[in-house]
């Protein structure tokens, strides 16, 4: 069963910014899915469309088989969203915010209060239930939004940068909470610009940049891919087939050009030793431009800039 299916989604904002250029992806029921990308990549826009806060320009979104175009109400009941920015009334009480949200889903006050208590307790906010939202710390506000998103028991929980600005310790406890929810069967999607976060939580990952999906794979393959560097070798003479090198994948681009995948753990010397033993001479060599690699460099630089001291 597909929890979320996105097909050819596009979004152009009124000011002409093309935030999404034909995005397609599937998230399966029970998955823990990361949408990773630098600032301005289109993560929040995607989530905004899925949660009915942003109107799409084109394409289709289906949630547990319910299309947002033809069965929006059913689709909406299946989703809980934790947005990137705080979006509750700062003057309302914590308990009221969560109970009111349940009411918006048609849940009567009695069961709404039970559900609100359950999630406020699980998120460590029960003692704060009578406080106004503005009196909470940043981390507590974020947890309040998580409780609010869960109060109608959605099957799919979407979190937009849930740990941005949250200190390390709280981040860990939030990770544990999300892992526990996922184990209990909820499908979870989170956006982040920390690879580390995606790595320690998620099974599948899509990488988005400039409004397009650059990569959509399972976490393990992605990490393997990142561990490999590809070089292009120009040869002195023509060869008829790609030479077989022990420990490296080699592809023939044309008779005089090879592409070699080199794991970062292996010395480059091995490549040349093996080629030399097969009488193949290399005239020049360059690094193959790798979009993923470049993207990660940018992500890492950005994270260094914006790392919050714990």
């Amino acid at each position: 069963m597909t929890a979320l299916s996105i097909r050819h989604l596009t979004k152009t904002y009124k000011n002409g910014v093309q935030a999404l250029r034909d995005i397609s992806l599937d998230v399966h029921k029970g998955d823990f899915f990361a949408l990773l990308g630098p600032n301005g990549a289109g993560k929040s826009t995607t989530i905004g469309i899925v949660s009915s806060l942003v109107n799409k320009s084109g394409g289709e979104v289906t949630i547990f088989g319910h299309s947002l175009d033809s069965a929006r109400e059913l689709a909406k009941k299946k989703v809980g969203v934790v947005p990137q920015e705080f979006n509750f009334n700062q003057f309302e009480k914590v308990f009221d915010i969560v109970v009111t949200q349940a009411g918006f889903y048609g849940i009567p006050a009695g069961p709404a209060k039970v559900a609100a208590e359950k999630y406020l307790r699980r998120l460590g906010l029960w003692e704060k239930r009578d406080n106004q939202a503005r009196e909470l710390s940043g981390g507590m506000k974020r947890r309040l939004m998580i409780a609010r998103a869960l109060v109608h028991e959605p099957e799919l929980l979407i979190l937009d940068e849930p740990t941005a600005g949250v200190d390390i310790e709280l981040r860990r406890s939030m990770w544990e909470f999300l892992t526990e929810l996922n184990r209990q069967g909820k499908t979870i999607i989170l956006t982040t610009h920390y690879l580390e976060e995606a790595e320690s939580l998620c099974r599948h990952i899509a990488i988005i940049d400039h409004g397009t999906i650059v990569e959509n794979t399972d976490m393990k393959s992605l990490l393997e891919k990142l561990q490999v560097e590809t070089f292009i070798l120009d040869l002195a003479g023509a060869v008829s087939a790609a030479p077989v090198l022990n420990g490296f994948t080699v592809r023939l681009r044309d008779a005089r050009t090879l592409e070699v995948d080199v794991p970062k753990s292996e010395p480059l010397n091995d490549v040349f030793t093996q080629l030399a033993s097969q009488d193949i001479a290399v005239m020049s060599m360059r690094n193959k431009a790798n979009r993923l690699e470049e993207l990660f460099l940018r992500l890492v630089e950005r994270n260094l800039d914006s790392e919050v001291p714990a």
Partner: peptide, 18 residues
């Protein structure tokens, strides 16, 4: 207006209320 201003209108927009 303050619901719009504080963005808490989103609480209603994500819900299935008509």
């Amino acid at each position: 207006f303050s619901t719009k201003f504080q963005h808490s209108i989103e609480e209603m927009l994500v819900s299935p209320m008509s």
